[in-house]
Design a binder for these strands. Sequence first.
DNA 1: CCCTCCTACGTACGCCGTACGTCGCAGGGA
DNA 2: TCCCTGCGACGTACGGCGTACGTAGGAGGG
Lengths: 209, 209
Amino acid sequence: MSASREPLTRDRIVDAAVRLIEREGVEAVSMRRLAAELGAGTMSLYNHVPNKAVLVDLAAERIMAEAQPYEVDSDDWRDHIRAHARAVRELARRHPRAFVLLATRRLSSEAGFRTIESALANFDRAGFRGEIAVGMMRAMVSYLLGTLMREVATSPELGGIALSPYGAVDMAAFPLSAGVLDQLGVYDHDQEFEFGLELMIAALERYRG
Amino acid sequence: MSASREPLTRDRIVDAAVRLIEREGVEAVSMRRLAAELGAGTMSLYNHVPNKAVLVDLAAERIMAEAQPYEVDSDDWRDHIRAHARAVRELARRHPRAFVLLATRRLSSEAGFRTIESALANFDRAGFRGEIAVGMMRAMVSYLLGTLMREVATSPELGGIALSPYGAVDMAAFPLSAGVLDQLGVYDHDQEFEFGLELMIAALERYRG
DNA sequence: CCCTCCTACGTACGCCGTACGTCGCAGGGA
DNA sequence: TCCCTGCGACGTACGGCGTACGTAGGAGGG
C-alpha cells in the first residue's frame, strides 16, 4: 500500500488504526490488515503494542485528543453549554464510526479531563458546584451520549423506525403511533439536537431558581 | 451439553442465543458454540436462520419482547413517566449484556411499538401531542439511552473515570476536576438516574407552562 | 571481535462465518 | 409396493482472525 521505509512506531501504528477506524469502522481493524497497510509483517506490530484491545484503546484516546476546545464569545453560561454541546456533536459527526468506540469506553488521560474541566467550568459559571455540578454534568453527558448514539450509531439502512426488517406491524393496535407515523419515520437531527439541548438547559435553569 | 432429542427450531436457536448473550455477551456468540450447546451440527443452524447477523437481530427482538409493560397507580403524568423510565432501567439492568445490542439497533416490530405507544400515551396525558410529543419522547429516549449505557455498558474493570489505564494525569492542570475528584470516581447509579429523571421531568413541566 | 539486545518476521494453532455437497428419511403419487 | 421428491442434518473446506513462539539479522557496547 505504501513505501514506508521508515521504521515501525507505536505512533505510526496508532495513526493507521485511527485512519482505518474512521474509514471503515472498528470492525474493519485487524492486525494483518493494519500491518499490510503499513508495509510490515503482521507480528511486527506486537513489538510496539501488546495486543489489539490496547491498540484500539490507544486509537480511541488519540481521536479524543483531537477534539478542539470550543470557542464562544459570551458571558451567559447557557451559551457556553450550548457551544460545548455543539462541539461534542461536531466531534461525533466528524468521526461517526469512532464515536461508538469512545462512547463505550471510560475516558481518562489528559484529553478526557480537558473536556470534564471545561464542562465543570460552565456549570460553575451557572452557579452549580461540587456534587451538584458533577450530577449536572453527568446528566448532560448522558443526554449527549444518547442523542449522538441515536444520530450517528444506529444502523442507517432502514429509512426509519416504522419500517420493520422482518415483517410488517399492524398499526391498528397503536393508534397514537399511527397518528404520528410520519414524524416517527423522519429524523431532522439538527432540529432534534437543539430541541433536546434547550430542554436540558431549561431544566438547569429551573433547578437554579 | 444437553440431550435435545427434539428437532432444531428457529425458536430453540434464538432461545439459546438469548441465553448465551445474557450469560456472556454478544461477543461470546458463535454459530459453532450455539450448535454445540443445542447438541446439533454447526451447519444445521443455517436451515433455520440465514446468517449470524439475523440471528442476533432476532435475539434482540426477543429480549425486547420480554419487556413488561410498567404498572403505576396514579393520574399524574409525571408518575407515569417515572414508572416508564424505571421500567426501561429495569430491563437494562436485567439484561446488561444485551442492552448495548438493543441500543445500537433500530427497533421495530410489535415490541418496539408497544413501548412507543405507551410513551406517547404518557406525553398525551401531559398535554403534549403530535410533533412535540415525538420530540419529547426522543429527548427522553436519548437521556435513558445515555444514562443506561453509562450505567451498564462502560467497562467496569476500572474503579472510576479518574483512573487512567495508561499513565497518570497531572491534576494540577485541572483544578475544578481535582476539587470533585472523589465524586468523579464514584457512581451511585440509583441516585444519578433519579436525579437525571427529575431533571428531564422538570424540563417538561417548564415547557408546559 | 564477540556478545547482547531489540526489531522484524514466518510459522502454526485454534478459533471464526459460511458455501457447498452429501446423506437419510418422511411423505405422496403411480 | 416402489419410487421420486424435498427437506433437515451434517461434514468438509476455505479464507479470515488474534497471537504464542521461535528465529534471524543488525546495531551498539565490552
